[in-house]
């Protein structure tokens, strides 16, 4: 019996010291971790809305405070609306793929950035692959300029070229963006008609 108390006491002291050390470390790293999350989101928003002023991307929330989408303006006074951004989440092969997507006021995609994915390295993860000598991931670059009707992968009869051997990941991104776009269209009450080319 005496033994149990002594052993428990020693183990207790060790765990208390460990908890104290971890508390201190967590205190130091917590603001840094939050800062990293904020930076990642900011970078994704800037990539999604390249024409917007970085200080003029404002979130639009529902009554519970959840962010529905973002509005991007060209000026800090938020008068000239250039487009919207939203987070599309699709179920990939081994993870939820989160993509930040930006569209102009007519519903045409102007920028996309994959925020997080944990797909198979070498297969699905190639949705983030940057080919040597290029600046942007090739899979994501092909979404630029597309509208709702073009958002289908080649296997489904659309123009989006999927990553070889990773149709599931490619399809997850493409379909989540299409669904997000349809949802956004409802929320804002329809996109503007694209400007007509002036008759020659």
């Amino acid at each position: 019996m005496k033994d149990v108390v002594r052993m428990g006491g020693i183990l207790g002291i060790v765990t208390i010291i460990a908890a104290g050390v971890l508390g201190a470390v967590a205190n130091v790293t917590k603001p840094r971790i939050e800062e990293q999350h904020r930076l990642a989101l900011e970078r994704a928003l800037l990539a999604a809305l390249p024409t917007a002023d970085p200080r003029a991307i404002v979130p639009v929330k529902d009554e519970n405070g959840n962010i529905l989408y973002y509005k991007g303006y060209a000026d800090p006074d938020t008068t000239k609306l250039v487009g919207y951004a939203f987070l599309a989440i699709g179920k990939g092969y081994s993870s939820d793929i989160q993509t930040m997507v930006g569209v102009d006021t007519t519903g045409k995609i102007i920028g996309i950035k994959i925020l997080s994915e944990l797909e198979t390295p070498g297969l699905g993860a190639k949705i983030e692959e940057i080919r040597h000598g290029e600046k942007r991931p090739w899979f994501q670059a092909q979404f630029i300029g597309k509208t709702k009707k073009d958002l289908l992968v080649d296997k489904d009869g659309g123009p989006i070229v999927s990553v070889t051997g990773a149709t599931i990941s490619s399809r997850a991104v493409t379909n989540s963006i299409r669904k997000g776009l349809e949802r956004l269209e409802k929320l804002i009450g329809g996109f503007k008609q694209p400007a007509q080319q002036p008759a020659a």
Partner: peptide
């Protein structure tokens, strides 16, 4: 159990530092 507590403490330190830096 004491070794495991010691090891887990350092692993958590590494994990938190990596997430932050």
């Amino acid at each position: 159990p004491i070794y495991i507590v010691v090891i887990a403490t350092f692993v958590t330190i590494v994990d938190l530092s990596m997430a932050g830096f």
